[in-house]
């Protein structure tokens, strides 16, 4: 079954001038809130959770982060994407306190029911583990990134 509407064209960011991790998380979450995907409590929940359970991951191609919250803060599932020009320091998922990773791709996840989105989450991880696909995506413009991600997540 194809995964529809996983991404939103207006929730793909690759030209933000923000350099601060929390400010970026706040910005992305606010845009998701404005589009009705998440509740007003989502932004704070994501930022707080990132402090306790960081989500940075070093994959073959880039540092990736998958910030998200508990499902109670979500109205409708979506993945917002931000590709930053200058990589941002995140802490490593499940790592020691001092373990850091320079993150180029932020996939902010709004998940209402993980059981419903098993395929989507599983496929997202297959994409960000794929060096070739990630190298390709990073060079594209906003619209093309959206098309490409949708294509990859549905195949």
């Amino acid at each position: 079954m194809p995964v529809r509407n996983t991404f939103d064209k207006q929730l793909i960011f690759n030209d933000l001038k923000i350099r601060d991790k929390n400010e970026i998380l706040q910005y992305m979450a606010t845009k998701m809130y404005e589009k009705g995907y998440v509740k007003g409590t989502y932004a704070q929940a994501v930022i707080e959770r990132e402090k306790v359970y960081p989500t940075g991951l070093q994959t073959e191609a880039f540092g990736v982060a998958i910030p998200h919250s508990d499902s109670i803060h979500v109205n409708q599932a979506v993945i917002a994407v931000c590709i930053v020009e200058e990589p941002i320091v995140f802490h490593v998922m499940g790592g020691a306190e001092e373990e850091e990773v320079l993150v180029k791709f932020i996939f902010m996840l709004a998940i209402d029911d993980p059981k419903k989105h098993i395929e989507m989450l599983s496929k997202l991880s297959i994409i960000f583990q794929d060096e070739q696909k990630m190298q390709e995506i990073v060079k594209l413009k906003q619209d093309a990134i959206y098309e490409k991600l949708n294509c990859y997540i549905n195949h």
Binding site: R49, V52, Y53, T55, I66, H68, S69, D70, S71, M93, G94, L109, I111, P114, K115, H117, I118, L121, S122, L124, S125
Partner: peptide
């Protein structure tokens, strides 16, 4: 995982 949502599902 941290909140039993995303990573654990993957």
């Amino acid at each position: 995982c941290g909140c039993g949502v995303a990573s654990s599902t993957i």
